[in-house]
């Protein structure tokens, strides 16, 4: 067995998992706390990538562009919440799905109008563009950066939700929003902040992947489905659940794609294994979700004390 390849694939899986976590953490807060299904969450992922692409060209600094883009997507989140999403909290999930699906189309068209149909690459500074060599293992520096920043954001988010006053209110709002507002907290403003925070995290996720894949129209639409799987597997409303299920799903998806055919060859013909493996690996995480829904419908780590 090629241990270097295994380790590389493990790091790739971890990287996918952490990007998924950034996307899913906002989604799970918005779904779990505000009971709002936001299909357009992936649009913030895309907008983050385009903002960063343009700002990197304008400022010449990827890091500066990154910070400005995250702030920019936060503002876009505030505007979308105040103008559209706020009117939908009282509506049922079907209305929310329809409107936010419409929002996806609007965002995709808007991006098409502003940036054109072509994707946009984000050039990395030389410092981040190299490779890290450990023994015989060679791994791109930038992927390590993604993993490290994903972990840092995860820790920061955990501290925010578990240790700060804002986090207490977010969790309190998840269990009983009427009581939170009867005790003097402007729940509309709280929801607005949570929504924009989720948008900013999605934007960060999209702009982190863009130097590898480039920013493109509809880039958020595929990954948002994975993000919903992460939310459901982890337990709706649970940051901790989103973290572990995102990493799990990132690893299963990556490992499945690279090792499933070898595994199947152990007990079927080579030809059959090579036909079945790609189809099966694409299904793996959905099989995982089905199994978890069957045995633990509340998800792996449902929020403590949730009703």
């Amino acid at each position: 067995m090629d241990w270097n390849l295994l380790l590389t694939q493990f790091l790739n899986g971890l990287q996918l998992g952490l990007l998924l976590f950034l996307l899913a953490s906002g989604l799970t807060l918005i779904f779990g706390i505000m009971d709002f299904i936001n299909l357009a969450h992936g649009s913030f992922y895309m907008v983050g990538a385009y903002f960063c692409a343009t700002l990197t060209l304008l400022t010449g600094s990827f890091v500066l562009a990154l910070l400005m883009s995250v702030a920019g997507v936060f503002v876009v989140g505030l505007v979308i919440e105040a103008s559209i999403v706020r009117r939908l909290y009282q509506h049922d999930h079907l209305d929310q799905v329809l409107v936010t699906f419409g929002l996806i189309l609007c965002f995709d068209t808007l991006v098409h109008l502003i940036w054109g149909p072509e994707g946009m690459a984000i050039p990395l500074p030389r410092l981040l563009d190299g490779q890290i060599t450990v023994g015989s293992l060679v791994f791109p520096t930038y992927r390590v950066i993604i993993i490290v920043s994903g972990l840092l954001v995860a820790i920061g988010l955990y501290v925010l939700v578990m240790k700060t006053r804002l986090g207490m209110l977010i969790r309190a709002g998840a269990s009983n929003r009427v009581m939170v507002s009867a005790l003097g907290v402007n729940i509309n403003r709280l929801f607005m902040i949570v929504f924009a925070l989720g948008a900013a995290l999605a934007g960060l996720s999209g702009l982190l992947i863009a130097p590898i894949t480039e920013a493109s129209i509809g880039m958020g639409n595929e990954i948002i489905i994975l993000a919903f799987v992460v939310v459901i597997v982890g337990g709706i409303g649970s940051i901790k659940g989103a973290f572990f299920s995102a990493v799990l799903i990132g690893l299963i998806d990556t490992m499945g794609r690279s090792y499933l055919d070898d595994f199947l060859k152990l007990f079927m013909s080579i030809q059959n294994a090579e036909t079945a493996a790609p189809a099966l690996s694409a299904m793996l995480i959905y099989i995982l979700m089905a199994v978890i829904l069957a045995v633990r419908p509340q998800g792996l780590f449902p929020p403590a004390g949730a009703r």
């Binding site: 309190a172 004390g305 949730a306």
Partner: peptide
Amino acid sequence: IGLVPEGRQIFPNLTVRENLLAT
């Protein structure tokens, strides 16, 4: 105006300390 509601409506997923501090 401070409310102690019918059914108490403690935040079940917050600790006692957090229940007191959050609002």
